[in-house]
Design a protein around this nucleic acid. Structure first.
Length: 446
DNA sequence: GCTTATAGCAGCGACTCCCT
DNA sequence: AGGGAGTCGCTGCTATAAGC
């Protein structure tokens, strides 16, 4: 896809999106990740209500820890999730409202079940399609939810930035902004009532109606919300923003904010990172892998290899190839070309790594393939087997065998019914868990 | 266990603008 | 012009949670 087409596509996506996700109060990164997964995979139960059930191991993986605090943490996550609201904006009426997303989130018998509110039926499909991988990557990168909320708000306007990338000016009433990003508790009955009116008086709501509000002091708001948002958005997203306060009245009270937004010229790198490494992020439940000693065009090199290698391997393995080759794309390609000439490779990943590290030439391979070297080869495979057994590649291979079976297509259909694609399955579950899933499906259906 | 980030509050001098 | 109300900018303190 050309860069230009990518730009157009992006804008299309943004302008369609009028539903945003926000937390009532502070929410953790873990909660965000689980929320994203829940939205992506929710399906309707027998009453037509959207619902999703996670296994313990899946949750643990997403949370990235397996210690004693797991249960306590999950409790707070569940609590925070039930406070999630969706932001619905009616631009013509110049009003907006928040609706609750989650009815209950509970942990019972080793399963974490999230029940969405019935209202969510109207928005779920919209959310699934609008909540793209890119947004997901950016979302989990923000450590401040206000930063993310401000990012979303400004991004809806980003399509108006012209080709010269001159900063686009957007004015916000301070109270309106505070309501929109969740600095003020919009769950309060009176607040909701006021917000539902056409052309609501935001200053009145914030100053006189709302009971719970955060960052009432301008300085605190500036330092802890605006400055943090500016820093994080400029560092992590495709936008570059700045702002200025609008003052009026006695004492020079700040009554509004003027934002200046433009495209972040450094974003290509960030984008590649978020898109390509998302699955690893979810797989490991960790933040993105270390970036030490990588060439500047690492992502281009990675993509080149990803395009080149047709065999299905995880991006983690692809990265390992690249690293083993000292980030030399040609060395990886050469090894891959060679692999295609082999009669049989039992462990593709292991073979590739070795081929890259030891620089197999066609001659060398010839000898190894020869009958007199069979014993040596068998030993190598055995050693490889023992080595890989510990790291899980054995399961990976077993999984690849399962995928060749006839009933695998039926299994795909089954998980599709659960709202999951093959890609999602493979990015969320480790091979061992995939097999467990597969086995329980066999047990139930065969 | 120490550090860092987020959140919130109190106090006080500095500043801005309104009003007389 | 200048007194004063209202607000800001900043320091410093505390609490909490997450990361190292």
């Amino acid at each position: 896809m050309s860069n230009e087409a990518r730009e157009i596509y992006k804008h299309e996506e943004i302008t369609r999106s009028n539903t945003l996700i926000s937390a009532k109060y502070k929410s953790t990164l873990t909660e965000n990740k689980i929320m994203v997964l829940a939205l992506k995979r929710a399906k309707r139960d027998e009453f037509g209500r959207p619902t999703i059930t996670f296994t313990t191991s899946e949750i643990k993986k997403v949370m990235g820890r397996d210690d004693g605090s797991f249960y306590t943490q999950l409790k707070s996550v569940a609590k925070a999730m039930t406070g999630r609201t969706m932001f619905i904006e009616d631009k013509e009426q110049h009003s907006f409202k928040f609706i609750n997303i989650i009815h209950t989130a509970e942990f019972e018998n080793g399963k974490f079940t999230v029940n969405f509110t019935p209202e969510m039926n109207n928005y779920l499909d919209d959310l699934k399609s609008n909540f793209t991988t890119m947004n997901m990557g950016i979302l989990v990168d923000f450590t401040s939810n206000y930063a993310y909320r401000i990012y979303e708000l400004l991004k809806t306007q980003a399509y108006r930035v012209d080709k010269d990338n001159t900063p686009l000016q957007i004015d916000y009433n301070l109270s309106e902004l505070k309501l929109a990003i969740g600095c003020v508790n919009t769950q309060e009955e009176r607040v909701q009532k006021e917000l539902d009116r056409p052309n609501p008086d935001f200053d009145y709501i914030v100053n006189s109606v709302a009971k719970e509000k955060h960052f009432d002091k301008w300085y605190d708001f500036r330092v802890n919300v605006l400055d943090v948002a500016k820093r994080q958005i400029n560092e992590k997203s495709d936008l570059e923003i700045d702002y200025e306060p609008i003052r009026s009245g006695r004492g020079g009270k700040v009554v509004g904010i003027t934002f200046f937004i433009k495209k972040n010229v450094n974003y290509n790198e960030i984008e590649a990172k978020t898109e390509k490494e998302n699955e690893i992020l979810l797989k490991n439940g960790n933040s993105v892998v270390d970036s030490a000693k990588r060439p500047d065009d690492y992502n281009e090199r990675f993509e080149e290899i990803m395009d080149y290698i047709d065999v299905r391997v995880s991006s983690k393995d692809l990265k390992a190839f690249l690293k083993a080759a000292d980030y030399d794309v040609e060395r990886v390609k050469k090894a891959y070309d060679l692999s295609k000439k082999q009669k049989e490779i039992k462990n593709f990943v292991g073979w590739m790594k070795k081929a890259i590290e030891e620089g197999y030439s066609e001659d060398v391979i010839h000898v190894i393939d020869g009958s007199e070297e069979n014993a040596k080869k068998a030993d190598e495979i055995l050693a490889e087997y023992e080595r890989e057994k510990a790291t899980g590649s054995l399961a990976e291979r077993t999984w690849n065998r399962i995928k060749k079976k006839e009933e695998y297509q039926e299994f795909l259909q089954y998980i599709a019914d659960q709202g999951m694609t093959e890609k999602t399955l493979e990015s969320i579950y480790i091979p061992k868990e995939r097999m467990e899933l597969y086995q329980s499906w066999i047990a139930e259906n065969k």
